[in-house]
């Protein structure tokens, strides 16, 4: 079963037009940014490097390893790519991987490719690199532990986002798809984390210069830390809500008109748009969570900036 489709590669038809286009737009923006960033910061040498690395991720996805009970862990590689190559190059590499999987093997669709790239390439890079970035320069064990955690979380976030997209397209019921996807990927994520850590440890031992070089080459990213933490927190916040109290989320989507757009009215993007009722407990929890996270991260940035200023003076 070399080419068994991973459960994260959404085929065409499973997402509706609106969701597909929204994620295509987000992906185009991020990939466009990545293109211009890599053009600016990376030398001409990086083009063959990124190409070979994309082939590497592809080949490494074949290195499944036996987990208990006859299942085998598959490797996504998004977090590893972002950690080793830097986030922008990682995004481009994963974009190419997802595109070739869709084009060559129909593993994932074309119209939904934006969503697939976003889930498996962008979210994984943001979380994978963002969290890892916080411990660059720390000792080896801490870095490896954080890398493993970020790889696991990246897998979970990708699974969560996939479930949400399926639900927003009214292809799946939230109450069923979220626990199922998260349950499966909690296991797959462990494999992902272990392989990421072991691969990093191997590289660390044999060619530590590579890790240091790549890390410093893209070390500008304080924004990545923020984004990484933010997205991770969002994932952690939404997961229990989505699986524990799905009716709340479902009602938001219903109020926003998503579920109906999904099924029959693709031309009316967000019709009869109404603000969700704040009185509902589930909704206010989410909003409070999101707002709280924003405030927290904002405070952290402010404090960080002040500290840096003080040090300079």
């Amino acid at each position: 079963m070399l080419l068994a489709p991973a459960p994260l590669h959404i085929p065409d038809g499973f997402l509706n037009l609106v969701v597909s286009l929204i994620f295509w737009a987000a992906t185009v923006i991020m990939v466009g940014l990545a293109t211009s960033k890599t053009n600016q910061t990376l030398g001409e040498k990086q083009v063959p490097l990124m190409g070979i690395m994309a082939a590497f991720i592809f080949a490494a996805q074949m290195l499944n390893f036996p987990v208990a009970g006859g299942t085998s862990g598959h490797f996504l590689g998004g977090a590893l790519a972002a950690i080793v190559l830097g986030p922008w190059a990682g995004i481009l590499v994963m974009t190419a991987v997802v595109a070739v999987q869709a084009l060559l093997f129909q593993d994932g669709g074309l119209l939904v490719m934006g969503a697939n790239i976003f889930n498996m390439g962008i979210i994984t890079a943001v979380i994978g690199f963002g969290l890892y970035r916080t411990v660059i320069g720390r000792n080896k064990n801490i870095r490896l532990i954080v890398a493993g955690m970020s790889a696991w979380l990246a897998t979970m976030a990708a699974a969560l986002l996939t479930s949400l997209q399926l639900w927003l397209s009214s292809t799946s019921r939230l109450a069923l798809v979220v626990p199922a996807m998260l349950g499966v990927h909690a296991l797959i994520g462990i494999g992902e984390a272990l392989i990421t850590v072991a691969a990093l440890a191997f590289i660390q031992e044999t060619r530590p210069d590579l890790l240091d070089k790549e890390a410093t080459a893209s070390s500008g990213g304080r924004g990545w830390i923020v984004a990484g933490i933010l997205v991770s927190l969002l994932a952690v916040l939404i997961s229990p809500l989505a699986s524990g109290n799905p009716d709340g989320l479902e009602r938001v989507a219903d109020d926003l008109g998503f579920l109906e757009t999904g099924s029959s009215k693709p031309f009316e993007i967000l019709p009869d748009y109404t603000f969700p009722v704040l009185g509902d407990t589930a909704i206010s929890t989410i909003i409070a969570g999101v707002v709280g996270t924003f405030i927290l991260v904002g405070l952290l940035i402010l404090i960080g900036r002040n500290l840096r200023k003080n040090r300079k003076q």
Binding site: A55, L63, F75, L194, I195, A198, A201, F202, T206
Partner: peptide
């Protein structure tokens, strides 16, 4: 998994 990870690392370095 350590063996598999080393293989991935090995593959990475060769690449």
């Amino acid at each position: 998994t350590k063996v598999t990870g080393s293989m991935a690392g090995q593959l990475f370095l060769r690449s």
